[in-house]
Computed example of a mutant assay.
Amino acid sequence: MAPPHNPHRRLFLGRGAAVAHAAAAAVLLPKAALASLSEEQDLARRLAFNHLHTHERLALVYAQGEQFIPAALPTLNHFLRDHYSGDVGVMDPDLFHLLHRVRQTLQTQQPFEVISGYRSPHTNETLRTTRGGGVARRSLHMDGKAIDVRLPGVSLSDLRDAAISLRAGGVGYYAREQFVHIDTGRVRSW
């Protein structure tokens, strides 16, 4: 004999199934959320710097994948300001991607030691005329497209070779002065 038809029983079972489904989803969501968080962390692009002239330090996530974090760019511009005059320029954001790729290529998390970032036209001209050469009249430092750096624990020649291998701009090797120039201009090396 079939059980008597009970509409309340069906409603109860239907609601029970919905509750069970919601409970299962609640258990699954944290795992999905964790996976999503892990993917976001994998996409996080980090940079770290020690400025040798201002003695400031900076470590930050400047982008998620290819998307720049808007607040990071002014922070980087200020950090890489002309240390002679205090003038803040606008750095080429592609320079940050290039530096990130250099660190990945070298498999290091060491902070870049900054010798020079942005240079005002006045500072550039002063350095050009008082340093006996070595500073370009139309330096890419004035456009925020160049930086002079080194990496602790990485030889200058390895840093130079890593930057050259990326074929993403200019690379200058200054062994006597102990830095490598990296820029987002045309591909060339000296």
Rank of each mutant, 00 (worst) to 15 (best):
Thr130Glu: 11
Arg15Lys: 07
Gly153Val: 01
Leu76Asn: 03
Ala33Pro: 01
Gly133Glu: 02
Asp92Met: 10
Leu37Gly: 05
Arg188Glu: 08
Gln107Tyr: 04
Met1Ile: 10
Leu52Ile: 13
Ile115Met: 12
His83Thr: 13
Thr123Glu: 00
Ser157Trp: 09
Lys145Ala: 15
Lys31Pro: 00
Pro4Tyr: 13
Arg186Gln: 12
Val114Asn: 04
Gly133Gln: 08
Arg103Ser: 14
Ala63Lys: 11
Gly14Cys: 06
Arg9Pro: 02
Gln41Trp: 10
Gln64His: 15
Leu98Gly: 08
Leu11Asn: 02
Gln41Asp: 08
Leu52Tyr: 01
His55Asn: 14
Val180Gly: 09
Pro121Tyr: 02
Val90Lys: 15
Gly144Thr: 12
Thr123Phe: 00
Pro121Gly: 05
Asn124Met: 03
Leu11Cys: 04
Val19Glu: 02
Glu40Ser: 13
Asp148Asn: 04
His78Glu: 11
Ala44Leu: 04
His21Pro: 00
Pro74Asp: 07
His122Lys: 11
Ala33Ser: 10
Glu125Tyr: 01
Leu58Ser: 07
Ser165Lys: 06
Leu140Val: 05
Asn6Lys: 12
Arg138Val: 02
Val19Pro: 01
Val90Asn: 13
Val180Phe: 06
Asn124Trp: 00
Arg150Ile: 02
Ala162Trp: 11
Ile115Asp: 05
His83Cys: 04
Gly153Gln: 01
Arg57Asp: 14
Gly144Arg: 03
Arg150Met: 07
His181Pro: 02
Pro70Tyr: 14
Ala23Asn: 02
Gln109Tyr: 05
Ala44Cys: 10
Ile69Met: 07
Gly14Ser: 02
Val171Tyr: 10
Ala25Ser: 05
Glu113Ile: 01
Leu80Ile: 12
Ala20Thr: 09
Tyr118Ile: 13
Ile147Val: 15
Thr54Leu: 07
Gly172Tyr: 08
Leu99His: 03
Ala35Glu: 15
Ala71Val: 10
Gly134Ser: 11
Ala22Leu: 15
Pro3His: 15
Ile182Ser: 03
Arg137Asp: 10
Glu177Tyr: 03
Pro111Asp: 00
Ala146Gly: 00
His122Asp: 09
Thr75Pro: 00
Leu43Tyr: 06
His97Tyr: 10
Pro152His: 04
Glu66Asn: 09
Thr75Tyr: 00
Gly134Glu: 11
Leu34Ile: 03
Arg128Leu: 12
Arg10Glu: 13
Glu125Ala: 13
Ala32Glu: 09
Gln178Tyr: 02
Ala24Cys: 09
Ala18Ile: 11
Ile115Phe: 14
Phe79Trp: 04
Ile182Thr: 06
Tyr84Met: 01
